[in-house]
Lab assay of single mutants.
Amino acid sequence: MTVRVDGVDYEFSSLEEAVRFALKMAKSKGAEVQLHNGTFHVE
C-alpha cells in the first residue's frame, strides 16, 4: 500500500497502517484523502 503526500510516496505493509498515516497527514494539513485503485492521495 502506497500513501502519496506532496508527491512523496510512503510504503506500508498493511492497509491499516496506510490508512492511519493518510488520515493523520490529511488532518495535519487540513486536506482530504482520496483512494484511487488502492493508492491513497492526500491533497
Rank of each mutant, 00 (worst) to 15 (best):
M1L: 09
M1G: 08
M1Q: 07
M1A: 11
M1K: 08
M1C: 15
M1N: 08
M1R: 10
M1Y: 15
M1W: 15
T2G: 02
T2L: 09
T2V: 10
T2R: 10
T2N: 06
T2K: 11
T2H: 08
T2Q: 05
T2S: 08
T2E: 01
T2D: 01
V3I: 04
V3E: 00
V3G: 00
V3W: 02
V3S: 00
V3D: 00
V3M: 02
V3R: 00
V3C: 09
V3P: 00
R4P: 00
R4M: 04
R4D: 01
R4Q: 04
R4E: 03
R4A: 03
R4K: 07
R4Y: 04
V5L: 03
V5Y: 07
V5D: 01
D6N: 07
D6A: 05
D6V: 01
D6T: 01
D6K: 03
D6Y: 05
D6S: 05
D6G: 05
D6L: 06
D6M: 05
D6C: 13
G7F: 03
G7T: 02
G7Q: 03
G7Y: 02
G7D: 05
G7N: 06
G7K: 02
G7L: 02
G7H: 03
G7I: 02
G7R: 02
G7M: 04
V8N: 04
V8D: 02
V8R: 08
V8G: 01
V8I: 11
V8F: 06
V8E: 05
V8M: 07
V8Y: 06
V8K: 10
V8L: 06
V8P: 00
D9T: 11
D9L: 12
D9R: 07
D9I: 11
D9W: 08
D9Y: 11
D9H: 05
D9K: 07
Y10H: 05
Y10I: 03
Y10F: 09
Y10N: 01
Y10S: 01
Y10W: 05
Y10R: 01
Y10M: 02
E11N: 10
E11K: 13
E11S: 12
E11R: 12
E11C: 15
E11H: 13
E11G: 08
E11Q: 12
E11T: 12
E11M: 12
E11P: 08
E11Y: 13
F12R: 00
F12V: 01
F12I: 01
F12D: 00
F12L: 01
F12A: 00
F12Q: 00
F12S: 00
F12T: 00
F12Y: 01
F12W: 01
S13G: 09
S13F: 09
S13M: 09
S13R: 10
S13T: 11
S13Q: 09
S13H: 09
S13D: 12
S13V: 08
S13Y: 08
S14P: 00
S14N: 09
S14T: 12
S14A: 03
S14E: 04
S14H: 03
S14Y: 03
S14W: 03
S14L: 05
S14R: 04
L15P: 08
L15E: 07
L15D: 03
L15N: 06
L15W: 13
L15R: 11
L15Q: 10
L15I: 12
L15F: 14
L15H: 11
E16N: 06
E16P: 04
E16Q: 10
E16T: 06
E16K: 10
E16V: 10
E16S: 08
E16I: 09
E16D: 09
E16F: 12
E16C: 15
E16G: 08
E17P: 01
E17I: 02
E17C: 15
E17A: 10
E17W: 02
E17T: 03
E17V: 03
E17Q: 07
E17L: 06
A18Q: 01
A18R: 00
A18Y: 02
A18D: 00
A18I: 02
A18T: 01
V19T: 07
V19A: 08
V19R: 11
V19M: 11
V19F: 14
V19S: 05
V19W: 15
R20S: 10
R20I: 10
R20M: 11
R20Y: 07
R20D: 11
R20K: 12
R20P: 00
R20G: 04
R20H: 08
R20F: 07
F21S: 00
F21T: 01
F21R: 00
F21L: 01
F21G: 00
F21P: 00
F21V: 01
F21N: 01
F21A: 01
A22M: 04
A22N: 00
A22T: 02
A22S: 02
A22D: 00
A22Y: 05
A22W: 02
A22V: 04
A22K: 02
L23E: 13
L23D: 12
L23K: 09
L23V: 11
L23C: 14
L23G: 02
L23W: 10
L23Q: 10
K24A: 14
K24L: 12
K24Q: 13
K24W: 14
K24G: 07
K24T: 11
K24Y: 14
K24I: 11
M25K: 03
M25V: 12
M25A: 09
M25F: 04
M25I: 11
M25E: 11
M25Q: 04
M25R: 02
M25Y: 05
M25C: 14
A26P: 01
A26M: 09
A26E: 11
A26S: 06
A26T: 03
A26H: 06
A26K: 04
A26N: 03
A26L: 09
A26C: 13
K27D: 15
K27N: 15
K27A: 15
K27R: 08
K27G: 14
K27L: 15
K27E: 15
K27T: 15
K27V: 15
K27M: 14
K27F: 14
S28N: 13
S28V: 14
S28H: 14
S28L: 15
S28E: 15
S28G: 12
S28F: 13
S28I: 15
K29R: 08
K29P: 13
K29E: 13
K29M: 13
K29A: 11
K29C: 15
K29Y: 12
K29Q: 12
K29F: 13
K29S: 11
G30R: 06
G30K: 09
G30L: 07
G30H: 10
G30T: 05
G30I: 04
G30W: 08
G30Y: 08
G30M: 04
G30S: 04
G30Q: 06
G30V: 04
A31Q: 07
A31M: 12
A31C: 03
A31N: 05
E32K: 14
E32T: 14
E32Q: 14
E32P: 06
E32H: 13
E32D: 12
E32V: 13
E32A: 12
E32G: 10
E32R: 13
E32S: 14
V33A: 04
V33F: 05
V33W: 04
V33Q: 03
V33C: 15
V33G: 03
V33Y: 03
V33N: 02
V33E: 02
V33L: 06
Q34P: 03
Q34L: 12
Q34E: 08
Q34V: 14
Q34M: 12
Q34S: 12
Q34W: 14
Q34T: 14
Q34G: 04
Q34A: 10
Q34K: 13
Q34N: 10
Q34Y: 15
L35Q: 06
L35T: 05
L35M: 10
L35C: 15
L35E: 05
L35D: 03
L35S: 05
L35H: 05
L35W: 12
H36C: 15
H36W: 11
H36L: 12
H36R: 13
H36Y: 11
H36K: 12
H36S: 09
H36M: 11
N37L: 10
N37H: 09
N37R: 04
N37E: 09
N37V: 08
N37W: 06
N37Y: 10
N37P: 04
N37G: 10
N37K: 08
N37I: 09
G38L: 08
G38T: 05
G38E: 04
G38F: 09
G38W: 07
G38I: 09
T39L: 09
T39D: 06
T39H: 10
T39I: 15
T39C: 15
T39S: 10
T39A: 10
T39R: 11
T39W: 07
F40Q: 08
F40T: 06
F40S: 06
F40A: 09
F40P: 07
F40C: 15
F40G: 06
F40K: 05
F40E: 07
H41V: 14
H41D: 08
H41A: 05
H41Q: 08
H41Y: 14
H41C: 14
H41F: 13
H41K: 06
H41L: 12
H41G: 07
V42Q: 06
V42K: 07
V42D: 07
V42S: 06
V42E: 05
V42Y: 05
V42W: 08
V42G: 06
V42M: 04
V42A: 06
V42N: 04
E43L: 14
E43S: 12
E43P: 08
E43C: 15
E43W: 12
E43H: 10
E43F: 13
E43I: 15
E43Y: 13
E43N: 12
